[in-house]
């Protein structure tokens, strides 16, 4: 489903990733942990097609993204992936529901259908009545939930999250993670969460630990 094969990335003289290989099966739920500088964000960016590795390849849903142009990777991201980042970064001028609708509209769906589906997701996440508010008028937790909704509204095969609850208190963080895990599990979406928080990692089935640009260990939950 999503695979990095012998990927190496350097920023100038710094080696961020060193011959890293990782394979995510469809429907897998993976936590990527490591200290700052361990390379976990770089690995995430490679998997998302944001940066091209200096060596190695990244395969998304059978397609080798390392050969695609920037525009094609962008399109692939739109079609197959959803992303949630630490600060959500919703467009502040748009309402929450307009933010959530965006991926569907970009994919060419009709506005009415997009709005309906977006409202459905906002409902699942418990913020249905905030659809017409702007980010400035809602709390951080609510905005982050909208970001999660945006990541899932177009039914992507893969959801990538980078410290999605980093800016939230524990209760809100727990709620957002629960929503993320539940929604991806029920739809069979692969979920990869980059985090340094043990509690966050414990929400997911598999734990991959990184250190100094390489994968240190992979721990699968055998009961699953």
């Amino acid at each position: 489903m999503l695979e990095a094969c012998h990927v190496s990335v350097s920023y100038g003289a710094t080696r961020a990733l060193c011959d890293v290989s990782l394979r995510l099966a469809p429907g897998a739920s993976v936590a990527l942990m490591g200290a700052s500088g361990s390379g976990k964000s770089s690995l995430l960016h490679c998997l998302a097609g944001v940066i091209l590795p200096d060596e190695g390849s990244v395969v998304v849903d059978g397609i080798d993204v390392t050969n695609l142009s920037d525009r094609e990777r962008s399109r692939l991201r739109l079609e197959r992936m959803g992303v949630v980042f630490q600060f959500g970064d919703l467009v502040p001028e748009l309402t929450l529901i307009e933010n959530v609708m965006l991926p569907l509209q970009l994919l060419g769906r009709r506005t009415r259908e997009a709005r309906r589906r977006a409202a459905e997701l906002l409902g699942l996440l418990g913020i249905a009545d905030l659809g017409d508010s702007r980010t400035g008028a809602v709390s951080g937790g609510q905005a982050q939930r909208a970001a999660v909704a945006r990541a899932m509204v177009h039914e992507p095969k893969i959801v990538l999250a980078d410290e999605p609850t980093g800016a939230l208190d524990s209760i809100n963080g727990e709620a957002v993670l629960d929503a993320l895990v539940e929604m991806t599990k029920s739809s069979g979406t692969t979920l990869l969460v980059v985090t340094h928080d043990n509690v966050v990692a414990s929400h997911l089935d598999t734990l991959v630990t990184m250190h100094d640009g390489a994968i240190l260990s992979t721990q699968m939950d055998t009961s699953v």
């Binding site: 692939l76 991201r77 970009l106």
Partner: peptide
Amino acid sequence: RRELTTLRLIGTPGRL
């Protein structure tokens, strides 16, 4: 820039 980066991240085409 931040919002634009996120929009590009979710796949919004540059020409839009």
